[in-house]
Lab assay of single mutants.
Amino acid sequence: SAVVMEEGSPGEVPVLVEPPGLEDVEAALGMDRRTDAYSRSSSVSSQEEKSLHAEELVGRGIPIERVVSSEGGRPSVDLSFQPSQPLSKSSSSPELQTLQDILGDPGDKADVGRLSPEVKARSQSGTLDGESAAWSASGEDSRGQPEGPLPSSSPRSPSGLRPRGYTISDSAPSRRGKRVERDALKSRATASNAEKVPGINPSFVFLQLYHSPFFGDESNKPILLPNESQSFERSVQLLDQIPSYDTHKIAVLYVGEGQSNSELAILSNEHGSYRYTEFLTGLGRLIELKDCQPDKVYLGGLDVCGEDGQFTYCWHDDIMQAVFHIATLMPTKDVDKHRCDKKRHLGNDFVSIVYNDSGEDFKLGTIKGQFNFVHVIVTPLDYECNLVSLQCRKDMEGLVDTSVAKIVSDRNLPFVARQMALHANMASQVHHSRSNPTDIYPSKWIARLRHIKRLRQRICEEAAYSNPSLPLVHPPSHSKAPAQTPAEPTPGYEVGQRKRLISSVEDFTEFV
């Protein structure tokens, strides 16, 4: 048969007729292969192709491409040299491709048809291009793949890379869960390890502090508590009631339409708007009261037996805890006409967050109470924005700035309102402590230090009264110190430094 060459192609190359033996071998191979691939376009007849790359030819070592076609129900084999250009295909004639002069020997084609199974398996396991790669995943090629499931790999992101949580363990979102698992493993320790309690022994800490320079003076030496005195035992138990972190309780009120001037209507609300609910979820963490331990979680007086509701929101960081007394989460009882059960919590909070959804101005004093010092007013606006402002009593104007209003988005509203309420509550605590000038409020841990110092002074006084020969370590507060001759004046800087060093040991009130 003659071949018409394309323009620009090399000279004529004689194409030899395939021997009958080659056709029989390739026909047997075509019957084993699956003929249901995917359909081509209507211009080209339905056909199945599979590209198999052999590394070497037997005796020649030339890479070839073998295409199996099922045109007219008769499979045909096409061998081509890759750099050459194939002729145009037609549905009426068999596929013809040019070969190099080196394939002119018909014996070479017979060798190609009689490829060993080793070469076929190696060509099938190679990388296939384009559409033949999808075909190689079918059941027909499963014989050339190794048996057994593939090893499982770690989760992959859409980009093909490992997620960040699997790369950096410290930033993994499941870090707290692993800590819980470690605690569970520790709890399952053997009885021999049960006595080993991690941490620092208080006796060891005391020993280090006792021999430090801070205890060089007799006034700073630790003293032993009497065991037989019940009054001192009660004082030590009272110390446990003062937490070592700051605590805040903040009221949250929802004002519906037409309720801006009605205290009873505001306290009777059992739910609010959708934006109000989203605002609550951002204030803190939802907790169930019956599962809380009052000595570990500050509840601000809420009952854990269901008297004040089942849930509330709280927030904490390293040095403070805040609980929100939310009116809509507290039960509304029919027998309580004046809502006294709610007001006994909300009316005693220094700061209230008022979500004013009424469309009218909310005035300070609508919720009557002796300790309502500051109101954080949240007014929802259009386009997911809110107006946040402050209202306070006249005696609080020096501590709280009420002249600045803020426009905040719904997303950042819980954070801004919480921070403003916490700052206002700190100012309210300082303002409330002014009624007792001898006990200015600095912080909870300073209050613990003052309680310890008062307890020490009482013990020293009782020891001096029981044994008059012992001198008083600290003179009583009601006694007057003996007159001392004025010492020589020293520079102001040295006096300030000495006073600062003494105050650092005794108390921190002056620095606050």
Rank of each mutant, 00 (worst) to 15 (best):
residue 441 Y to A: 12
residue 373 F to C: 15
residue 243 P to I: 05
residue 475 P to W: 11
residue 421 A to V: 01
residue 282 G to E: 04
residue 391 Q to W: 05
residue 450 R to H: 07
residue 256 G to F: 01
residue 493 Y to E: 15
residue 505 V to M: 10
residue 461 E to T: 12
residue 354 V to R: 00
residue 445 W to G: 10
residue 441 Y to D: 14
residue 459 I to S: 06
residue 250 I to Y: 01
residue 433 S to Q: 10
residue 329 L to S: 06
residue 335 V to L: 08
residue 389 S to F: 07
residue 432 H to R: 06
residue 385 C to S: 13
residue 354 V to T: 04
residue 411 R to T: 11
residue 289 L to A: 14
residue 261 N to E: 09
residue 424 A to P: 00
residue 477 S to K: 12
residue 258 G to Q: 04
residue 235 S to P: 06
residue 232 F to H: 06
residue 392 C to W: 04
residue 343 K to H: 09
residue 328 T to P: 04
residue 276 Y to V: 01
residue 388 V to E: 00
residue 344 R to Q: 12
residue 301 G to M: 06
residue 424 A to T: 04
residue 442 P to G: 09
residue 281 T to A: 12
residue 467 N to R: 12
residue 226 P to H: 12
residue 446 I to Q: 10
residue 289 L to F: 08
residue 223 I to A: 07
residue 350 F to C: 03
residue 459 I to T: 13
residue 286 L to S: 06
residue 288 E to Q: 13
residue 292 C to F: 11
residue 448 R to Q: 14
residue 223 I to R: 05
residue 279 F to H: 00
residue 226 P to M: 14
residue 390 L to K: 02
residue 487 A to S: 11
residue 436 N to S: 08
residue 413 L to W: 00
residue 458 R to M: 15
residue 489 P to L: 12
residue 269 N to S: 02
residue 365 G to Q: 10
residue 437 P to W: 05
residue 366 T to I: 09
residue 471 P to E: 14
residue 496 G to N: 09
residue 230 Q to D: 12
residue 415 F to E: 04
residue 219 S to D: 15
residue 399 L to D: 06
residue 272 G to I: 02
residue 320 M to R: 02
residue 288 E to G: 08
residue 270 E to F: 04
residue 289 L to H: 14
residue 412 N to P: 01
residue 413 L to E: 00
residue 403 S to L: 04
residue 264 L to E: 13
residue 455 L to G: 10
residue 257 E to C: 06
residue 388 V to K: 00
residue 352 S to K: 05
residue 441 Y to V: 14
residue 427 A to C: 06
residue 364 L to C: 15
residue 263 E to F: 02
residue 400 V to S: 03
residue 381 L to C: 04
residue 482 P to Y: 09
residue 392 C to K: 02
residue 481 A to W: 09
residue 368 K to R: 12
residue 342 K to S: 06
residue 463 A to H: 14
residue 253 L to H: 03
residue 283 L to K: 00
residue 486 P to G: 12
residue 369 G to R: 05
residue 276 Y to I: 00
residue 313 Y to Q: 04
residue 477 S to I: 08
residue 262 S to D: 15
residue 295 D to C: 05
residue 465 Y to D: 13
residue 421 A to R: 00
residue 490 T to R: 11
residue 482 P to C: 12
residue 505 V to G: 14
residue 328 T to L: 00
residue 387 L to S: 05
residue 224 L to G: 11
residue 382 D to Y: 02
residue 269 N to R: 02
residue 247 T to L: 12
residue 444 K to V: 08
residue 374 V to L: 03
residue 357 D to L: 00
residue 406 K to C: 15
residue 374 V to Q: 01
residue 455 L to I: 10
residue 248 H to M: 14
residue 399 L to S: 06
residue 468 P to Y: 11
residue 292 C to K: 10
residue 260 S to I: 08
residue 270 E to Q: 06
